[in-house]
Design a protein around this nucleic acid. Sequence first.
RNA 1: GUGGCUAUAGCGCAGUUGGUCAGCGCGUCUGGUUGUGGCCCAGAAGGCCGUGGGUUCAAAUCCCACUAGCCACCCCA
Length: 443
Amino acid sequence: MTAVKIKPRLPKGMRDFLPNEMLKREYVFDIVRQVFHLYGFEPLQTPVLELKETLMGKYGEDAEKLIYHAQHPGGKEEVALRYDLTVPLSRVVALYENEIALPFKRYQLSPVWRAERPQRGRYREFYQCDADIVGIASMSADAEILGVVVTALRRLGFQQFSVKINNRKLLTAIGQYAGVPRDQLGDLYRSVDKFDKIGADGVRKELLERGIESEAVARMMELIQARQPGLSSLDYAEEMMGNFPAAQEGIRELRELAGHLADANIPPQFYEFDFTMVRGLGYYTGPIFETVITEPNLGSVTGGGRYDDLVGLFRKESLPTTGTSLGIERIIDLMDILNLYPPDIVGTVVQVLVSVFNDDTRRDSTRLAAELRAAGVNTELYLQDKNLGKQFNYADKKRIPLVAVLGPEEIAAGAVKLKRLNDGAEMTVSRGQVGAKVQEMLG
RNA sequence: GUGGCUAUAGCGCAGUUGGUCAGCGCGUCUGGUUGUGGCCCAGAAGGCCGUGGGUUCAAAUCCCACUAGCCACCCCA
């Protein structure tokens, strides 16, 4: 053995999740999964690695630089770690077109990798929870996606949030209306997207700095400043830009979407039309969505939209597709900050600690643990050789709710003493009914 | 990728203009309490002050580089 140890470290932006944290993560995953099932989505799993040709050219130039490349020495295939779950889905749909019945409603809870500089709420390995509907052009599909988002967030305990809805077609029309040349559209969108952060004046300033004509900036500002509640914003947009075909189409879609949302009983306080919301990824073609929880601001917690052309990159004919991604990492960070976890998930899965009185009684404790497990109770048998006080201490620290004491007295009486740690209540019960009594004491 | 801030015990921190500055709180361990945790009391362990150079009689303290983390920008979940 050498004296030099390797420093235990992690790659930048990657994390371990210790049991305490995993319990919380799984709680969130479970709720999200339930909601996906509730809306009729079914699970899909794809490999961590994709062929480079599958990933390249889908996300835009900037995003592509963040793709992790994964080669082994002498490898013949060019492979990379997946960057999101949307492109793999499109690949799957194209690959199994004869086996998949449309509409294809799938969800996937999986890690993705992006070589970004880590920050709060931003990691290099992080889980996304995607739900998408392939094969439906109608806005009813988009409405279902928004229903999933709103339901999942509400079930997780978020009270105040707003899903912002915009449309790529409308953004195109806004650019046309303002008279901004094509090569400046990116700059235009990037600035407009910051409206919430830097305000109207900030956007105006930035647009001018980016060299966009002052006349175009003025027309632009007139448009985006007129943000109005509910559907009146759509009326306003139509009034202003109604003679642009892209605007007509975009507004028609959003009207249709609004109708479906109302029919589906999605409470209107949870969504709004916001023409300043822009999504960066290149593949969106229609309605786009994003959810921001403003207090505290950790960036967007969901993002999605319609991408009718993406499947078409993998086969002759494309398929209309819409979907969303829940940013589970940011949701988890917010759950902690806002204290949204139910009290019983913190600590441990163990319901009862079976203590061991002394060496002579260990066999009895082992049998008791077996009986409890057979009765379906999550049971930990104390495996060390320490006095009762230490064993209670251990249970207390691990937040195990009940301790079973099986000393000579109990053994002689064919009984078990159960103690509930949060209030100190004790109950001596016969061995035969210990499973039922444990459930009773756990309430 | 660009800029800024930070780095002292397991965790959170203090350390004044270089000279008892190696400390505090929490946690851990031991005992008070060998059939019962939390609270209290007493005690103990634990640090090459991120790493490597430099300045100086003297560096946790000043300078440089590196590394890591955080924040902002970019972008995004």
